[in-house]
Amino acid sequence: MSTALTIFGLRAVLYPNGHRPAHVHVIGNGCEAVFNLHCPNGPPELRENYAFSRKDVVKLADELAANLATLCDKWRQIHGHHE
C-alpha cells in the first residue's frame, strides 16, 4: 500500500496489487471510500463509500480532482497504463 496523497488528515492510497480501472482508496477516521480516477482527464467518481458523509465525499472528490495529475502519474508508476 502506497500513500499517494494526504487529504484533510486522511490517506489516499494505491495498492500495489490493485486492479484496473485506475482508482484510489481514501481511508481514515474509521471510514473508507473508493474513487475511480478516470485518468488522465477525470473527474474522479465515487465507486464505494463506507461511512463518509455526502458532504465529505464531495470535498474528497474535489480534492482528488485538484490532484488528479499526480494521482494518475503514481498509478502509472505502479501499474502501468490507466485503462
Rank of each mutant, 00 (worst) to 15 (best):
V24W: 15
T6L: 11
D56S: 06
N36F: 08
N17V: 04
P40D: 07
P43Q: 14
P16K: 15
C39N: 01
H19M: 04
A12H: 13
A51E: 11
K74G: 02
L37S: 00
H25M: 12
H23F: 04
L14V: 09
T3A: 04
K74R: 02
G30M: 03
T70I: 01
E63Q: 10
G30A: 05
S53E: 08
V24N: 06
L10T: 04
L64Y: 10
A22F: 02
E48C: 09
Y15W: 13
S53P: 15
F8D: 12
A12M: 08
A4P: 04
P43C: 03
A65G: 12
P21D: 06
G9H: 15
G80R: 08
E48D: 11
R54M: 14
N67M: 05
G18C: 02
C39Y: 00
W75D: 06
Y50I: 08
R54V: 05
K55V: 05
N36H: 08
G9L: 12
H25A: 14
L10D: 03
A69E: 15
H38P: 00
L68P: 02
N17L: 04
P16I: 07
G42I: 01
C72Q: 02
D56Y: 09
H79E: 09
S2G: 09
V57Q: 08
F52C: 13
I78K: 03
E83N: 05
F35R: 01
H38V: 00
P44N: 12
V58S: 11
K59I: 11
E32K: 05
N17I: 02
G28K: 01
Y15K: 12
P16H: 13
R11Y: 14
K55I: 09
A65T: 05
V34N: 05
P40N: 07
V57S: 03
Q77V: 09
V24K: 10
H81D: 15
G80S: 12
D73C: 00
G42V: 00
G18A: 05
V58D: 15
D62H: 10
P16S: 10
D56R: 10
G30F: 04
S53D: 15
K55C: 03
L46A: 13
L64C: 08
R47D: 13
